[in-house]
Amino acid sequence: MSLTQQDVARIAKLARIAVTEQEIDAIGQQLNDIFGLIEKMQAVNTDNVEPMAHPQDVALRLRADAVTEQDRRDAFMALAPQTEAGLFLVPKVIE
């Protein structure tokens, strides 16, 4: 599979990464190399192999349902660029 310039631009947009016109070809080449690697792996016969979600065969550790966190809003807000009335302020986004 080979990515077009448009594919690269779309992937960059989805990932919110600014890619200039000049960079598109080079990035496209890198991504195509990765696809080449994936194609090699997909050629391996995996019949009767259960797909793995994680390389280690261990189960997730769980926690009991209890409130263990305190209110640390002031500390968190001190790190934010802009706040008001206990809210984090961000550029307006309406969908």
């Binding site: 926690r63 209890a66 409130v67 263990t68 966190e69 209110d71 640390r72 809003r73 968190f76 807000m77 009335a85 206990g86 809210l87 984090f88």
Partner: peptide
């Protein structure tokens, strides 16, 4: 481990 109680003051139940 942050609380899910409804109606708290904004961002007082949001941990790291």
């Amino acid at each position: 481990g942050a609380s899910t109680a409804f109606g708290a003051a904004p961002n007082t139940q949001a941990c790291n």
